[in-house]
Design a protein around this nucleic acid. Structure first.
Lengths: 218, 218
DNA sequence: AAAATTTATAGGGAAAAACCCTAATGGACG
DNA sequence: CGTCCATTAGGGTTTTTCCCTATAAATTTT
């Protein structure tokens, strides 16, 4: 095995941070070497730890991801920056590109998307979530993966609800009783949701749920 | 349904806080009405929200659980305080009783233990985790549940490992492959662990794992 | 030291759950 | 008004889990 990709996670939400770490460390060729919960620490850690890729949430306390990206770009141009965000905030998109981010992944994407994105930016290509590919980004567009993008439909409310309960450890039957639906219906929603996300196991559902910050309240 | 028990959670670790909230809100007769991540806020919230029971971690920033318990006892004697802690820290035990805590639950106990404890202290009885009952606590001993304590053995490393992976969404087979053991062995560890904890479903495993703060790293 | 208990391992067979395929209904949208 | 797709669900097969039993090794007790 050649050297592992060194990843730094900059994300203020601990649950997501730990979920991402879990996911990344599960890849044989990647390794989380540091974590920061604010932009300032992210800048310091970037210099100190010299990661290959920084996974950075754009909304963070103190110094936000945008500012942090700009400063890291300036001081450590070698380091690739992959931004991670909740919504399709158009506003940030162009600013981030300008700030020097190498990629842009939505939190609502499947975990496999994030892994693909890491590999893509580590290879020196820009990466844009398929759900955004048909938007702006003139000359930077990624040529590698993601363009032939697995249709990235949104999950319906029911589908999200079912996946969340599955991640929490409920069986299809228990969910059926809970929501007063047939097991068969739960199975259908689950299967449809998994197809949409391109995932195929319960761990993937758990990982997706963690990324969604679904493991809380209710 | 008579009025629900109002619960305040004072715990600095967010994952645990959310896990406990999940568990408590799943009870038809309980409701989380507030959360605090430090002792100071816990004291303020106790006065402001007037909960029936406070579930309080003893190690918290600013003002620790011990100090907070003492002050809440003084200002709101009606409110029951149930302390939640990681280890069998003998040291704290007597201090907590002196500070006015009504109960003491270990984090390594099954979630059902916590629920039982809430009901017991809400009823005006003292509660002590069965694992500790055979220790100190002269005149305060609980007479209600818990004394006829389900044998509270510790999980072995293997058992913990298996439960953790199950909580993360792995199937027995996947765990077997992962640890290079037969599925049958995994099943046995799982069954033994569940028997020890007195639980019987995957959700219970997930809840237990959250209480253990197992859903992180690795 | 011998005996008893617990841990780690695992098989066989029954029961339960999940999976794959198919399908009807009722909106939304062009 | 026809097409897409969300929501609902059944039939039959495959996979997983559950329950009971078992053995060697380590640990604890007597």
């Amino acid at each position: 095995m050649e050297k592992k990709l060194k990843i730094l996670i900059a994300e203020d939400h601990k649950t997501v941070r730990e979920g991402v770490k879990l996911l990344v460390n599960a890849q044989p060729d990647m390794e989380v070497i540091g974590e920061a919960d604010n932009g300032e620490d992210a800048i310091a850690d970037a210099k100190r730890l010299d990661p290959d890729v920084i996974i950075m949430d754009i909304s963070m306390p103190h110094v936000n991801g945008l500012q942090a990206a700009k400063r890291i770009r300036a001081s450590c141009p070698r380091i690739k920056i992959l931004t991670l965000t909740r919504h399709t905030d158009d506003g940030y998109l162009q600013q981030l590109i300008a700030a020097g981010a190498n990629g842009y992944v939505l939190k609502q994407s499947a975990p496999s998307e994030l892994i693909k994105a890491i590999r893509t930016v580590a290879d020196g290509n820009a990466y844009m979530d398929p759900a955004l590919t048909n938007r702006v980004m003139g000359g930077y567009a990624t040529r590698s993966a993601s363009l032939r993008g697995e249709n990235k439909q949104q999950l319906t409310d029911r589908e999200s609800e079912v996946l969340r309960l599955i991640a929490l450890g409920y069986s299809n039957k228990e969910i059926g009783v809970n929501l007063d639906l047939s097991v068969k219906t739960i199975e259908a929603h689950k299967a449809n949701a998994m197809r949409k996300l391109g995932i195929s196991s319960r761990i993937d559902i758990v990982r997706y749920a963690i990324l969604q910050e679904w493991m809380q309240d209710t």
